[in-house]
Amino acid sequence: MKYNTLGRTDISVSEICLGTMTWGSQNSEAEAFEQMDYALDNGVNFFDTAELYPTTPLSPETYADTERMIGNWFAKSGKRDQVVLATKVAGAGRPYIRGGAPITAAAVREAVDSSLQRLKTDYIDLYQIHWPNRGHYHFRQVWNYDPSTQDRAQALADITEKLEALGDCVKAGKIRAIGLSNETAWGTQKYLSIAEAKGLPRVATVQNEYNLLYRAYDLDMAELSHHETIGLLAYSPLAGGILSGKYQGGARPVGSRGSINSDIGGRLQPLQEPATKAYLDMAAKHGFDPSALAIAFCLTRPFMASVIIGATSMAQLKTDIAAADITLTPDMLKEIAKIHRTYPMPI
């Protein structure tokens, strides 16, 4: 297992990160404990969660149960000091989370304190803004994204307010570093500029979707990552499980994400099928598990800080973690580039 430094911090994390959004819905607490034990024993020191989780499906009844399970594991195992822990404050849109209101300074402070209590810890290593208050192109909103409707002054004031609240939490020792999620290049740069001007915490990471079927990060965000030393935490490296091949031919395995969320957040639609088949064929040609191939590709990207995996079974978890041991040759990367050129944005 390789380890990377988060941004310009001194925090070192495994290049594979254990995602948790199925814990409390598709996975029981006992299964969550087993996953954390196995991951830590196999070099994964980085866990990512959110107050919103579990998400499969989202429910006010299960809200924040994932954080509670992690806190229970910390209490039982005594291994809090061996884990780099990341969590997130939810944005607007869920009535059962602070009335569905946008993220404010007060919301950040309240959310941090609530997460600390649930997680049974006195600090969070990486605290992330789950999504911005203004519009963005993530969650399949790329097709109708229109930033011309945004108010610049309001957006800048909003970023400043959040940064100041995060700065207070850093000063209080409640969080060590800050990150963004579902952000754009402009938004990320403004966080950096405002933080530098006002002496506030510097963004260390951006957690955006990245996989063989969705590579928007390769463009402006990759340039920003390079020049500003900000790593990507890639979520959905398997495109919600699509790249495992489990949904080929219209299949919906019982208990899978696709059986709960029929289109997997807009990803599972006909245009992805030829591209997915091409990657499945390539994996078969080289004797790779298709999930392992998809994760191994993400690990080759120069801007990658860590790839967030998620599994509902131990077999899946073992395959995903083992992807860190795969080396893709230059010729294999050329094959991937050829498929990507043929199917540049199928989801």
Rank of each mutant, 00 (worst) to 15 (best):
N72L: 14
A315E: 15
R109L: 14
L224M: 08
A92G: 09
L40R: 11
S77F: 08
C17P: 14
Q150M: 03
S259F: 05
Y191E: 05
H227I: 07
E67T: 00
N211Y: 04
S148W: 01
P147D: 04
H130P: 14
M221S: 05
A239S: 11
D289G: 00
R109A: 13
M304Q: 10
G265L: 10
T327L: 06
D81I: 06
P54V: 04
G255R: 10
S181R: 10
G241L: 06
G245Q: 07
K334G: 01
D10N: 15
M314I: 04
A296K: 09
H136Q: 11
T188P: 13
R301S: 04
M1K: 14
T327E: 08
T188V: 07
Y214V: 00
T20F: 13
L116V: 08
V108W: 12
D65V: 02
K190C: 11
L6W: 07
L119K: 07
D325P: 06
Q117W: 01
N42W: 05
D37N: 13
K318S: 09
R152K: 08
W143D: 10
N133H: 06
D325R: 00
Q154V: 13
G187Q: 08
A239H: 08
S25I: 00
S181I: 12
S28C: 09
L156Q: 06
T56N: 09
Q248G: 02
G241R: 05
P57M: 02
T329L: 01
W131C: 12
A204L: 09
R341Y: 07
P95V: 02
M332R: 03
E31V: 03
Y235E: 06
M332A: 02
V89F: 04
G240K: 09
Y63C: 13
A337E: 12
P147C: 02
K79I: 00
R109W: 04
G43R: 07
A311F: 10
F297S: 01
A275Q: 02
A283W: 00
L166I: 12
T312K: 14
I347N: 12
I11C: 05
L333Q: 04
L180C: 06
M304N: 08
L200I: 13
A155H: 05
S262D: 11
A195C: 13
L116R: 14
D281N: 03
P132N: 04
P302N: 09
A197L: 11
I124Y: 09
F47K: 05
Y127R: 11
T329M: 00
T160Q: 03
A75Q: 14
R152V: 01
Q154N: 08
L212S: 04
A337N: 06
L219E: 15
N4L: 03
L219F: 12
Y63L: 15
L116D: 10
R134M: 12
E51K: 08
H227Q: 06
G258M: 06
I11N: 02
R257M: 09
K2T: 04
N261G: 04
P330N: 01
G7E: 14
I103S: 07
P201I: 04
D81N: 15
G187Y: 14
W186A: 10
N45V: 12
M21H: 05
L180E: 15
D289M: 02
D263G: 10
D325L: 01
D125C: 07
E164S: 07
I230W: 09
L293K: 07
H227P: 00
L271Q: 11
D65P: 07
